[in-house]
């Protein structure tokens, strides 16, 4: 019973961790990437707790989710196109679905490694399976990147149109003029191959390695107390060094993020109020004003009706 629960919890946590990371890497919206990253962190925290490192698990949730993720999402909100709305028009959804299908082989490899721990043959089999599935992965990303370039092409031509750029000022501001808007670089297929190679090499090394000297000893359930004693006793210098590092790091971050005091600095110029008329909008793609004049009357009518209903 306990064993089944262990396996089930491990499977759920590792699935959340890996699927969250995969979603983070492949989704087109930066904000969603942040949320996927949170799922991945939660999965890893669950794995920590399963490994009876409760303190590290709680620290993971507090530090990564409470601290880093808030920082990341704050940064994302400053970004250009955080929600990936510009990507919505490009034909990506089938390929994204392809990516979510790509989740299956990896998890198979994981569960295979978990099901037969003892037999080396089963392990190498799982390794082969993983490798076999990893290859189409890379190719699929290849196709994705190529398609993606094709999808981005019309948009680039669009942005090159001078008038359009004037009307759509937001686009020009981001410095994205004629470039494609994807979140990934052109080296994406190469990166996919590299990542697949890294994963295959790491997993292959795991399966080639003879058994680790695993002990059956059970850690103290009150491990937080032991860790605290170690931190204050044996690793005092590391603890103080980490504290000093945090202090210096925060100083550095504040110094970097502060607006420069140099008068020629563009960050100062951007803050000054500019007393100039904004550029006239030539084509706002709205209906002419003549029609807008007739609009208030039906609205009034409607509100009257609503009022009557409310009274009745």
């Amino acid at each position: 019973m306990m064993a089944a629960f262990d396996i089930l919890a491990f499977g759920a946590c590792s699935f959340v961790a890996v699927a969250g990371a995969l979603g983070m890497a492949t989704t087109m919206s930066m904000f969603r990437s942040g949320i996927f990253l949170m799922a991945s962190f939660i999965g890893v925290a669950g794995l920590f707790i399963l490994l009876s490192a409760d303190l590290i698990g709680l620290l993971q949730v507090m530090m990564y989710i409470g601290g880093f993720l808030v920082m990341i999402l704050f940064m994302v909100l400053v970004m250009h196109d955080p929600g990936g709305a510009m990507m919505a028009g490009m034909e990506l959804s089938p390929l994204e679905r392809w990516f979510s299908k790509g989740l299956v082989p990896r998890d198979e490899a994981t569960s295979a490694g978990q099901d037969d721990p003892a037999s080396g043959e089963g392990r190498s089999h799982a390794g082969n399976r993983h490798e076999g599935h990893a290859m189409p992965h890379g190719e699929g990303r290849h196709g994705h990147a190529r398609d993606h370039g094709g999808g981005a092409m019309p948009h680039g031509a669009h942005g090159g149109h001078a008038e359009h750029r004037h009307a759509d000022h937001q686009h020009g501001d981001g410095g994205h003029g004629g470039m494609d808007m994807s979140m990934v670089t052109p080296v994406r297929p190469l990166a996919a191959w590299l990542a697949a190679a890294a994963g295959v090499v790491l997993v292959g090394m795991l399966f080639l390695r003879p058994a680790w000297p695993v002990t059956d000893a059970v850690p103290d359930p009150d491990s937080a107390r032991r860790v605290g004693n170690l931190l204050m006793d044996k690793y005092m210098v590391a603890f103080e060094g980490a504290g000093f590092l945090i202090l210096i790091g925060i100083f550095g971050a504040v110094l970097l993020a502060r607006p420069s005091t140099h008068p020629d600095d563009p960050s100062r110029a951007a803050k000054a109020a500019v007393d100039a008329k904004p550029e006239a909008i030539r084509d706002d793609r709205l209906a002419p004003l003549a029609e807008a004049g007739g609009a208030p009357e039906p609205e009034h009518h409607g509100s009257h009706h609503g009022h009557e209903d409310h009274v009745g």
């Binding site: 306990m2 064993a3 262990d6 396996i7 491990f10 590792s14 961790a17 890996v18 990371a21 995969l22 983070m24 890497a25 991945s40 890893v44 794995l47 399963l50 490994l51 990896r106 490899a109 994981t110 490694g113 978990q114 721990p117 392990r123 994807s182 979140m183 990934v184 670089t185 080296v187 994406r188 190469l190 990166a191 996919a192 590299l194 990542a195 697949a196 890294a198 994963g199 790491l202 997993v203 795991l206 399966f207 680790w212 695993v214 059956d216």
Partner: peptide
């Protein structure tokens, strides 16, 4: 410990591979 060490290491390796991909491929 019904779940072997290798299973945890496999999960970590997958996470590492995804991280490498993200670092290289994201713009």
């Amino acid at each position: 410990m019904t779940v072997p060490l290798t299973a945890y290491l496999v999960v970590a390796a997958l996470l590492f591979a995804i991280g490498v991909y993200t670092v290289v491929a994201q713009r």
